[in-house]
């Protein structure tokens, strides 16, 4: 478990998220996309639920107990999950670090 303790900037978190997304859906799909903090997981990135599970697992493995990512997701209803975008995750991780 490569748990980190140093505080990351929002840009560093964004780059890390992009890396995780690439690992989950594959480089060939990511190359065709313009990933921004506004990118939503289901509409823009077209990730399905099992891919979001993989993505969540990567976040959990990276940040360890520092953040309760699954707990945060579980508080959302279906509409919120569908509209979830990268910026919201970046803000959440930043909050957990502060």
């Amino acid at each position: 478990m490569d748990t980190i303790t140093t505080k990351l900037s929002s840009e560093e978190i964004f780059n890390l998220m992009k890396q995780f997304i690439t690992e989950v859906i594959g480089e060939e799909f990511v190359e065709e996309m313009d990933i921004t903090p506004e990118s939503s997981f289901t509409k823009d990135l077209e990730m399905d639920s099992i891919e979001i599970v993989s993505f969540s697992e990567k976040i959990k493995a990276h940040f360890g107990e520092q953040i309760d990512f699954t707990g945060w997701l579980s508080s959302m209803d279906l509409d919120q999950l569908i509209n979830l975008n990268l910026g919201m995750i970046i803000s959440y991780i930043e909050e957990c670090q502060s």
């Binding site: 639920s49 099992i50 979001i52 599970v53 969540s56 699954t70 997701l73 579980s74 959302m76």
Partner: peptide
């Protein structure tokens, strides 16, 4: 389907 049907809401509770 797959395990994600439980992963986000049902399993955590």
């Amino acid at each position: 389907s797959n395990l994600s049907v439980y992963y986000f809401n049902i399993a955590p509770l």
